[in-house]
Write a protein that binds this DNA or RNA. Structure first.
Length: 566
RNA sequence: CGGUGAUUAGCGCAGCUUGGUAGCGCACUUGGUUUGGGUCCAAGGGGUCGCAAGUUCGAAUCUUGCAUCACCGACCA
């Protein structure tokens, strides 16, 4: 490709609205342009990267036995009604109508479509297992799109769905996919970790996320400092404190805490440590019998909403109660709620349940209790793990302490079970001639997000430093003063012909620009190898080679140029 | 959806307090100059100042409403 016939679209200045480095560099290097909130055009350079990522994913999926299809982005509402996600999915699902006023959705994912295909096309156990994938545009009407293509509303995703008769067979394919994902992210040149994950709204059991480690990540990943354990914080278990609960020595006492509306203020007022207090949160219950549930965590801990939501008593999604419900239930403001004397179910976090002589709200504005002890002062409660782990906690794997890092989720694999197959009546005849509902797995990779994640991990102050496998061009030819030197021009042209004739993806910078401008552009775009042609070295028949990753420069015989691409 | 802030040329910004002919840098066009790290000089093109209404002789500037965008919180590849 010649720059004179290409749309380079590089920018000298950083657009004001781009916050994270990958978004800034994607705009500056001319990879994408914003069209509307969460919607992007992929410019030629960006598309090249996207296609390379896509191709690696495709190759490894195929190698792992999956077969490619392409499903429509627009899907009929009846399929979603069948799976009951028409009601469950919420406003993230963009719904629309055609001219006949029939309802459709823009596909945020494709379980419904693929399940309906398989139930029609597959009738016998002999045709299974089957693993089908596609690389396709998804649409999710995110509440808040952000960070460029990292969380766009429209994005490119590889999604695969496997179908099985037995859970053993599903587990086998799941493991195959796990291994394929590791190969994919290795080939992409990313520093990644598979982590144990919650299944979320898709349901089922058994799930791993693949995270690219980067400070700008939106997820907290929990590691053990002395084992291979890694999990999303949503999933990481907070172990119960070891040993017996200390014996209380105090008796309950009501104390005035005027103006102390937060845990910190209460602790300061009473001159005690935050971890000797508990906070009580009121959330919606799952049943009409118990519309409000009290959750109790230690003052210095955070509620883990996913863990809470997974408890059967609690409504999903987790919803905090309204002001009115607070008044009806405890007749005081949020800052003074406590677990004592409530007529609603009380669920206490393991760490909070280990406290003795602690402080809690008195359900009376401006008052707290001190010297509170479980079983003495209240007995009607249950204990569960409902908090986020914090750094220094013992690792759930039993070895070492917890360390927390930020990650960008680029892949997620699930064992779905029969949720969709059952709802949509997808089964086959078994060997014994009986109908058997299938069990499913699903496996996603955020293709467009990978492009952003790769930049987050590979950049410097000059621009992007692409891993070789996904660089938009393998190399760039940068001639010095081609307009003035016939010799430079001829050499550069010949080099370009030679490289392109053997299929090397090279960008020939034939603009009439000063060297500095060209260097700056190619470093911004992140081309791994610059081939610099100048008068300076032509007497010796040499060109200069500059490596974008290492910064190393060296001289090379022109005739050896091909050796760079072995 | 709640909170915060923004909207003036393709991009980055000033002007608004105190109303009076819309400006700077980059980019773009033309000519020259320079040529191994974003040269320099000169001339030039480009803006319904987000939209609407109001106040006023007069609004980018003041008032009100709306829209869009971004950031912080709950969802997810």
């Amino acid at each position: 490709m010649r720059t004179s016939q290409y749309l380079l679209s590089t920018l000298k200045e950083t657009p004001a609205h781009a916050e994270v480095i990958s978004h800034q560099l994607m705009l500056r290097a001319g990879l994408v342009r914003n069209v509307a909130s969460g919607l992007y055009t992929w410019l030629p350079t960006g598309l090249r990267v996207l296609r390379k990522v896509e191709q690696i994913v495709r190759e490894e999926m195929t190698k792992a036995g999956a077969i490619e299809t392409l499903m429509p982005m627009v899907q009929p509402a009846d399929l979603w009604q069948e799976s009951e996600r028409w009601e469950d999915y919420g406003p993230e699902l963009l719904r629309l109508q055609d001219r006949h006023e029939r309802s459709f959705v823009l596909g945020p994912t494709h379980e419904e479509v693929i399940t309906s295909i398989i139930r029609n096309e597959v009738n016998s156990y002999k045709q299974l297992p089957l693993n089908v994938f596609q690389i396709q545009t998804k649409f999710r009407d995110e509440i808040r799109p952000r960070f460029g293509v990292m969380r766009g509303r429209e994005f490119l995703m590889k999604d695969a769905y496997s179908f099985h008769i037995t859970d053993e067979c599903l587990k086998k394919t799941y493991q195959t996919m796990f291994d394929a994902y590791c190969r994919i992210f290795d080939r992409l040149g990313l520093d990644f970790r598979p982590v144990v994950a919650d299944n979320g709204s898709i349901g089922g059991e058994g799930s791993h996320e693949f995270h690219v480690l980067a400070d700008s990540g939106e997820d907290d990943i929990v590691f053990s400092d002395s084992s291979e354990y890694a999990a999303n914080i949503e999933k990481a278990e907070a172990l119960a404190p070891v040993g017996e609960r200390p014996h209380g020595t105090q008796s309950i006492k009501e104390v005035a805490t005027p103006d102390a509306k937060t845990i910190d203020a209460v602790a300061t007022t009473l001159n005690i440590a935050v971890n000797q207090t508990v906070k009580t949160l009121l959330v919606q219950g799952a049943t009409e019998d118990h519309p409000v549930i009290a959750l109790v965590v230690r003052g210095d801990h955070q509620l883990n909403e996913v863990k809470a939501e997974n408890l059967p008593q609690i409504s999903s999604p987790l919803t905090f109660v309204t002001e009115e419900q607070v008044q009806q239930t405890v007749n005081c403001n949020i800052g003074s709620i406590g677990p004592i004397g409530l007529s609603i179910p009380v669920i206490v976090d393991r760490s909070a349940a280990h406290l003795a002589d602690f402080v809690c709200g008195a359900n009376k504005d401006g008052f707290h209790y001190t010297g509170v002890n479980w079983d003495n002062d209240l007995s009607n409660y249950t204990v569960a793990d409902i908090r986020n782990v914090v750094e220094g906690d013992p690792s759930p794997c039993g070895k070492g302490k917890i360390v927390i890092k930020r990650g960008i989720e680029v892949g997620h694999i699930f064992q779905l079970g029969n949720k969709y197959a059952k709802a949509m009546n997808c089964g086959v005849l078994t060997e014994s001639g009986k109908n058997q509902t299938l069990t499913m797995g699903c496996y996603g990779i955020g293709v467009s997000r990978i492009v952003a994640a790769a930049i987050e991990q590979n950049h410097d102050k000059y621009g992007i430093k692409w891993p070789k496998a996904i660089a938009p061009f393998q190399a760039a030819i940068v001639p010095m003063n081609m307009a003035k030197s016939e010799r430079v021009k001829e050499t550069a042209e010949n080099l370009y012909k030679q490289l392109t004739s053997v299929g090397i993806d090279v960008l020939f910078d034939d603009r009439k620009e000063r060297p500095g401008v060209m260097f700056a552009d190619h470093e911004l775009i992140g081309t791994p190898i610059l081939l610099i042609v100048g008068e300076r070295n032509l007497d010796d028949n040499k060109i200069e080679v500059k490596n974008r990753i290492t910064g190393e420069k060296s001289l090379l015989d022109i005739t050896d140029a091909l050796s760079l691409f072995d």
